[in-house]
Design a binder for these strands. Structure first.
Length: 334
DNA sequence: TAACCGTGGCT
DNA sequence: TAGCCAAGGTT
């Protein structure tokens, strides 16, 4: 795997250039948080923007929370952004990142995978790194037939047995690159795989059949209303509660979610609300949401709040569902 | 343990 | 196109 990595490693901006010293722990940590359940393609531009604006963990720790949340908008899983800020402050306070897996694991937003990855990649420690790529590769090489996620202990044990004592960070990244480019979820390229001869799933003739996953639950449909209050080219934005769905993010006002389409539930304030004919649909991790759109023009006596210029909506840092709604409303004639 | 928590790329 | 999937963590 290390030989394969030396020849085929992806060129990623958070990796140290070949032949240089270990990469900056700040960049490794930031990339690992961004990459949680998120594709490399989505992370690339966000990572570049973050390191350009906040070149060090001290700079990130000193940033206003609202700036960080807005910069994260669009990446999803916003608890990561809240934890990112808390973690930056902790690290800046203690004068640098912990260099052990145990120390890293205690940081907010850093779980078993991320602690192992940072320890191995940034600090050269031997650590057993199991992400979704490694899990898939290992499940195939050993033809582990127990379904995920119950098989995770087996996968970790198997990964431990094949992790080298030196260059374990490169080994982990090699496994991730292999899983990303060769040992893919569907139609794996076994003829290009350095592990094919050692792979039980390949010998079985059905590599794609591993790992086995349990069927996912269907997503329920929910309904709600988004409120667009406009005053002299500005629209009223709110800050969502600090936890829960889209927690801490700037947003358009909404009513509650329900199982049936709303009439006109809980507008943020009294106004001549008008329902638009179109709706906006959005799918979250565990439910689908269809949103009715309520609009109103208000005079100079609108509520106190953050009135954001309509022509500068892109810089508001709205989560995707609100950006979608804003686009639909701005296109509508009303 | 299992529910909760986003989004965009890919097929 | 609708579903699958991703460098998971927290409660």
């Amino acid at each position: 795997m290390l030989a394969w990595y030396d020849a085929h490693a992806r060129d990623l901006p958070w990796r140290a250039a070949p032949g240089t010293n270990a990469p900056d722990p700040y960049r490794v940590w930031l990339s690992e948080i961004m990459l949680q359940q998120t594709t490399v393609a989505a992370v690339r531009p966000k990572f570049a923007a973050f390191v350009a604006r906040w070149p060090s963990v001290e700079a990130l720790a000193a940033a206003p929370e609202a700036d960080l949340m807005a910069a994260w908008a669009g990446l999803g899983y916003y608890a990561r952004a809240r934890n990112l800020h808390a973690c930056a402050r902790t690290v800046a306070e203690r004068g640098g990142f912990p260099d052990t897996e145990e120390g890293l694991r205690a940081l907010p937003g850093v779980g078993a995978y991320t602690a192992a990855a940072i320890a191995a990649i940034a600090f050269g420690a031997r650590a057993v790194v199991v992400d979704a790529n490694v899990a898939r590769v290992v499940a195939r090489v050993f033809a582990i037939s127990r379904p995920l996620p119950g098989a995770m202990p087996d996968l970790r044990d198997a990964t431990d047995r094949i992790t080298p004592d030196t260059r374990s960070g490169d080994f982990a990244q090699a496994m991730m690159d292999l899983g990303s480019s060769v040992c893919t979820p569907r139609a794996p390229h076994c003829l290009a795989c350095p592990l094919a001869e050692d792979c039980a799933a390949y010998r079985s003739g059905d590599p794609e059949g591993f790992p086995i996953k349990l069927a996912k639950a269907a997503k329920p449909q929910r309904h709600g209303t988004i409120f667009w209050a406009e005053q002299e080219g500005r629209v009223l934005l709110v800050r969502r509660p600090p936890r829960g769905l889209l927690g801490g993010m700037r947003a358009l006002p909404t009513g509650p979610w329900a199982d049936t389409p709303p009439a006109l539930a809980d507008p943020p304030f009294a106004a001549a609300w008008q329902m638009l004919p179109e709706t906006v649909s959005h799918t979250f991790t565990h439910f689908r949401l269809e949103l009715a759109l309520a609009v109103a023009r208000v005079d100079g006596h609108g509520p106190i709040g953050e009135w954001w210029s309509v022509t500068e909506m892109d810089s508001a840092g709205l989560p995707t569902v609100f950006a979608k709604a804003a686009t639909a409303i701005r296109r509508a004639r009303w």
